[in-house]
Design a binder for these strands. Structure first.
Lengths: 209, 209, 209, 209
DNA sequence: AATGAATGAGGGTTCATTCAT
DNA sequence: GATGAATGAACCCTCATTCAT
């Protein structure tokens, strides 16, 4: 039987595979390192038999990889849907900053993405490799921001004199800065004030005048 | 014997321990995951016997942790020394951007730091925990930037109306954005142009007018 | 799964555990020291995989401990059954002496028990500790002899003027003396003659007149 | 250099070797199993360097074996000297019983001997083997009792109708019984009463009428 | 002679994977 | 398809032994 990849259509994912994915994501969010997850831990968390995992995957690595890729794809889709729902750049930025605050406690989502994107390990290479496969381009973070900011630019909400890619990275990095600040303790600036500063910085740099 | 922690003074590190640290750093830079490094791989890379590692450390985890903490401490000290050498904010920013370009190939240094700092895993918690111990505050990245930017501000090179901590995080995130862009393929903007944009963005936002 | 203790009911011992117990006993009887048995030696002797042992026990020590405790329990039960089958004190003594002769070659059974009971090592402490647990009192050697000799006394076969406990220890030690003599080389007295002397000594001291 | 055997004359034992022997004996008395003693534990206890032990012995086994053999030799010599000092059989028996009581707390001396004599392990075989070497016969327990009881018999203190070897084993076993009883808890007979019974039993069986 | 840092063979234990049920 | 008992390769760690000082 041909095994799962994490790139399947949502509706084509068998229930047991879905349970496995959720279990992996949950364990990683709880602080386990993807590289040291044990198959027994995954299948127990998923509530299925250990042998069953091997009906759908060839190896432990494939299970974890599939789950991470699936999660990133899902998170990216949700993020794009949410951003598209907002018609104005400033609302999109607000949404992103609010999401970061929400993530502060359950350090998951998109935070994980950044972590994996800055990683240099073998595991991460494989995630990158798989993400570059086939039709996955659609779900990569850079592409996503490019599309969203591209539309904003066409609507005339953004400065026209800066290259799109610069704005993509700069916006991303400011969000990231807020993310790190939100999880940092002992800051001399209160978080709401920091949020305001970040928001203002973004608007000052990118918004059309 | 009392075992190593990674927080020792440079001159107090026994040669074998130094070899172990270098080996761990080299292996991680080559793409190994800290969580899956094998003791035999480390000691072979270090050119010493496997048992010798256990003369200085209690467990594999301690070896890797010690090496990472040592490396972060060392990298932070070097970075601060280099930044202090430069008298003007704009030279400091140039230095940081040049370093990022140099790191592009050997994805180590400071890039690793960011990765580990955004991690949520058990290993990362232990790094954080050890970094918060004793006199290590001195070497934490946030503190480092605070000191350097603090001096710049006193010299009147920076805007006085923004909180220091905001500038710390914002500067850090812009450097990070450039770092990710430098390692990204298929960018529509050439890297030198990107560098210029990042430099200009930083100056526009922070430099005293 | 909850792991084995050596105190389980015979019928509740899984086959693999039984194989492990037999293997340990066989290896000890062949002269291996319980403290230096290797797990691989045990599982090879048992004809099962090394990992399987750890499905049922937490550590090597637990395997060996479980086997020894099981063996002592089993040996004590068999011994009591055999002694109860004999209706007269003199037949019981004869049985014990015959058993010793039979054991001479396969130095196991009861001989081992004595050895472990006179030991002062950590391992021995653990055996004692486990034997004192729960319902194990029933299988301890002193208790066993007390019950058997107690019945003999009630039937009027033994002297009434000696305390039961003295007879228990004295009988036990005489049997032991014969045991050591049987394994000793270069004796000036032939074994059958020795047996007769021991038998006579026991009868003279304990039998009702 | 020729290494130590444990059979050397007391005056020929170098101080470091003596320290090693004492350390081994002390560790065994404290409950360590001879088979699992670590060289580092022995040399630390002895207060000498680890390498030094190998100046005098070829292997760990030799150190432990040498120490045990030395100890048995010494204990046997002391025992024989003490027994020879006593002129009457009844005083000799009293001395043995008193020794057992004294040993009750520091479970060492002679108790250990019994343990090793009933052992069936590889280590024990080696002790036996070494004891059978050369002039060591002199120090074996059976021989010792034979000499002492032989003299008693010549002096007419013992029955003439029993073979010497039977008396040797029987006396030994009765002493052993008292030894085990002394270390047993929950006895229905008080120890002094037990001592009296054992003493009387010995006298009744062996003393000339 | 005495030392103890260095070593690596060896053994305990884990855990990914298989396969009979 | 689903399971989990069984497996053994692989890996961490210990510790007897060596040898340069």
């Amino acid at each position: 039987m041909s095994k799962m990849t994490g790139l399947e259509e949502y509706s084509l994912i068998p229930p047991k595979v879905y349970q496995l994915y959720q279990a992996v994501i949950r364990l990683i969010e709880e602080g386990s390192d993807p590289a040291t997850l044990r198959v027994s831990a995954i299948t127990e968390e998923a509530g299925i038999g250990k042998g069953t995992a091997y009906e759908y995957f060839d190896s432990k690595e494939d299970i974890v990889l599939g789950a991470v890729v699936y999660q990133m794809q899902t998170a990216a889709m949700e993020l794009e849907a949410e951003l598209s729902k907002r018609e104005r750049f400033q609302d999109q930025v607000s949404y992103l900053l609010d999401e970061v605050s929400a993530c502060k406690t359950q350090k998951s989502c998109f935070f994980k993405l950044v972590h994996i994107l800055t990683d240099n390990s073998e595991f991460s290479s494989q995630v990158h490799h798989k993400m570059n496969e086939k039709a996955f381009e659609r779900y990569r973070l850079v592409g996503l921001f490019r599309r969203v900011l591209g539309e904003d630019m066409e609507r005339g909400e953004l400065r026209q004199d800066l290259p799109l890619d610069y704005m993509v990275f700069s916006l991303g990095s400011r969000i990231l800065a807020y993310m790190v600040a939100a999880s940092e303790e002992g800051l001399q600036v209160e978080l709401p004030r920091m949020r305001e500063l970040v928001y203002r910085g973004i608007m000052d740099e990118f918004a059309a005048r």
